[in-house]
Amino acid sequence: MTRVLLVAPAFHGYGESIAGALRRVGHDVILHAYDANETLASKVRTKLVHELPSRFGSRSGELARKRTLTARAVAAVVAGRPDVVVTVKGDALGADYWEALDASGARQLLWLYDELARMDLDDDVLASRPSIVSYSPQDVAALRERGLRAGHVLDAFDHTIPFTPAPGDEVVFIGARYPDRTRLLLGLHERGVPVRAYGRDWSRHPVDRARTWELSRPDVPSARGVDRPTAYGLTAGAVAALNSHTNQDGFTMRTFELPGTGSLQLIDRPDVDTLYEPGREVLVFTDVDDLAGLCERARADRTWARAIAERGRSRTLAEHTFDHRIPLLEDAWA
């Protein structure tokens, strides 16, 4: 049995999903969520001590947090005595962590499910990694051009998370707020399409305004952020769910989660045809008018929409769960 230390962000519990898939094929897995704030006190401390100084141009809080996270991750490596260490992203960790990895003698894999351009990963660290996988085909190509061992591993859906569909008559979006997403949702709302955006960037709740250091919100119906089981239920019961990419060449988790939950996915990427069949398993839109038309048809013809969603779910369960990605990880760390 291989002892795997999985060092991953706490973000939406994806580390738990990866750990579960590794365990299902027989690995002994230790999960270290390196940036987890497990108590209210720790969350408040992160805001006041680590994030607040950056609002005034100081990096003191950011650097202090990096030192803390790095020390915890180093301790996890030393205590875990792993055969393999899989680091997911890892750009919040300092040089001491990577040195501890190299000194451990464990096989290593760096898994990136974000573009390098969006990360703060030291180039010397990147160049010294023995094996890297990324969801970004462009990053994989660039890394290979540099002579690094790099492979392409898609994001995935966790089919083991239980959820209850929440039937509704809205088109939903769950995720961060970016200008293109705001434009699309405003456009739908202005055209009379019932929509709702979920997430702290959209929510008008005073706690979310404080958490995001921002008071203004776009004129889009919104709600607070939700955990993954709730998100899966909302998308499963919605008329349709929007998946909008922002300067991304990789396909996000939502690409697989939406059809995986049985939702009708509306996606802005025609190249999704390498994964799903547009028109039969997902719907691709080109602009806000096209998107509005698809939304209205989905509302008017639920049988049509449900048939597409069910075919998308079948394809996801057959090809795009985390279990399907594990053999690629095992090959990459070998």
Results as ranks from 00 to 15, higher is better:
residue 2 T to G: 00
residue 3 R to W: 04
residue 3 R to G: 06
residue 4 V to I: 14
residue 5 L to V: 11
residue 5 L to D: 10
residue 8 A to T: 14
residue 8 A to I: 02
residue 16 E to Y: 08
residue 23 R to Q: 13
residue 24 R to E: 13
residue 25 V to I: 10
residue 29 V to Y: 08
residue 31 L to M: 12
residue 31 L to C: 14
residue 31 L to W: 13
residue 32 H to E: 12
residue 34 Y to I: 07
residue 34 Y to K: 08
residue 35 D to P: 06
residue 36 A to P: 03
residue 37 N to T: 14
residue 40 L to S: 11
residue 44 V to W: 12
residue 51 E to L: 12
residue 52 L to V: 13
residue 56 F to W: 14
residue 57 G to L: 06
residue 58 S to N: 05
residue 67 R to G: 15
residue 69 L to A: 06
residue 69 L to S: 09
residue 71 A to E: 14
residue 75 A to L: 04
residue 78 V to N: 12
residue 80 G to T: 08
residue 81 R to F: 00
residue 88 V to D: 07
residue 89 K to G: 00
residue 95 A to L: 12
residue 98 W to T: 03
residue 101 L to Q: 12
residue 113 Y to L: 13
residue 114 D to K: 03
residue 118 R to E: 11
residue 121 L to T: 03
residue 122 D to Y: 06
residue 126 L to I: 05
residue 130 P to L: 07
residue 132 I to K: 02
residue 145 E to R: 15
residue 150 A to M: 11
residue 152 H to S: 02
residue 156 A to V: 03
residue 159 H to N: 13
residue 160 T to N: 09
residue 161 I to Q: 14
residue 164 T to A: 15
residue 169 D to Q: 12
residue 169 D to S: 15
residue 171 V to E: 07
residue 173 F to H: 09
residue 180 D to N: 11
residue 191 R to L: 04
residue 195 V to P: 02
residue 195 V to K: 04
residue 195 V to G: 04
residue 202 W to V: 05
residue 208 D to V: 02
residue 208 D to F: 01
residue 210 A to K: 03
residue 212 T to K: 07
residue 213 W to N: 12
residue 214 E to Q: 14
residue 215 L to S: 11
residue 217 R to Y: 11
residue 222 S to I: 05
residue 223 A to Q: 08
residue 225 G to D: 11
residue 226 V to G: 05
residue 227 D to R: 10
residue 231 A to W: 00
residue 235 T to A: 12
residue 241 A to H: 01
residue 245 H to P: 11
residue 246 T to R: 11
residue 247 N to H: 14
residue 247 N to I: 03
residue 248 Q to M: 12
residue 249 D to F: 01
residue 264 L to K: 00
residue 266 L to M: 13
residue 266 L to Y: 04
residue 272 V to I: 15
residue 274 T to R: 14
residue 274 T to A: 15
residue 279 G to L: 10
residue 286 T to W: 04
residue 287 D to A: 05
residue 288 V to N: 01
residue 289 D to E: 13
residue 292 A to S: 11
residue 297 R to H: 11
residue 302 R to M: 09
residue 304 W to F: 14
residue 305 A to R: 01
residue 306 R to S: 12
residue 306 R to W: 06
residue 309 A to C: 04
residue 313 R to N: 00
residue 321 T to H: 03
residue 324 H to D: 07
residue 328 L to H: 07
residue 331 D to R: 06
